[in-house]
Design a protein around this nucleic acid. Structure first.
Lengths: 160, 160
DNA sequence: TATTGTTATACTCTATAACTATA
DNA sequence: TATAGTTATAGAGTATAACAATA
């Protein structure tokens, strides 16, 4: 009997709406906007993303590398950088190893801002998980990591 | 010592990138576009979403209800419906209970199309989880459901 | 000639404002 | 006068195309 397949389907049918729910809670709840407000930041969201990428990287990155990590296209990053540099949150310097390229680095002001923003976001997730046992937290993190990897690997066949 | 807090932070720090990874794999991998192509559908993505919402609902819905479920605003849905109705994928009929409102229902063609589309998407996720034990699937689904609910509840305080 | 980045432009998605019809 | 929906318009986000500079 196809019990296993049926059960797997049911579980999957339950899984997808949950992913959608999380995505909705974050995207439509405008978490990033609210976190920016809470951190006292007035910036467009993609610009904040650039700052976040640089902060997480912990080192200066090339324009193309930022675009890759943001999964967007070069010109989009350039536009954000123009705004960010005008506000002294990042700085573009020519890459000493290749003068075609530019290295983008956070200014101290940019770093502070990113730290505040991420701190707020982080705090909210921490609070949401406050009642969880360490064991459950570990299990969720582990399974979610595996799921993310399996999904990424499986969908990689679509790469052009 | 703050061992627990530190560990929780580490786990959280691991969790957020994973959510981001999944979101990226789906959004930027253009899963919906590819699923539409695979299902032989040529439709704008928001229009496909309308079809999906109606398919999942399993019954005709009012325009406002579709907007709520899509988490968008009324006029956006109207625009999609105009296109969908012109292609005979949905049909608008006046609500017999309130002639201000209209009930939107799938045509048989619209239903077939949504079925094909969802079947493709579903198949991809199923394949990605093919190697998982039923136990792990169950655990992930359960914890993810709890996480989604806790997050939603926690962020609900932002509701205006 | 290939690559890095920039400028200019266009397209997709979604929101706000103003309006119509019915309750 | 409140509500359901529509039309018209505007804005945010990202892409494509054409170009400049360096490798």
């Amino acid at each position: 009997m196809p019990t296993d397949a049926g059960e797997a389907d049911d579980l999957l049918a339950a899984l997808l709406p949950r992913l959608s729910q999380i995505s909705t809670a974050v995207t439509r709840g405008k978490l990033d906007e609210r976190a920016m407000a809470a951190a006292g930041v007035a910036l467009e969201r993609p610009a904040m993303t650039v700052l976040t990428v640089l902060h997480v990287a912990g080192e200066p990155l090339r324009v193309g590398e930022i675009a890759t990590r943001m999964q967007v296209v070069g010109p989009h990053v350039t536009r954000q950088l123009n705004a960010l540099e005008a506000r002294h949150l990042v700085q573009r310097v020519t890459d000493p190893d290749d003068s075609r390229a530019r290295l983008v680095e956070l200014t101290s002001e940019g770093r502070d801002l990113a730290t505040r923003y991420l701190g707020v976001l982080f705090g909210w997730f921490t609070e949401a998980l406050a009642d969880w046992s360490p064991q459950d937290r570990r299990t969720l993190t582990g399974l979610l990591a595996r799921f993310a990897d399996d999904l990424t690997a499986h969908l990689a066949r679509f790469a052009d």
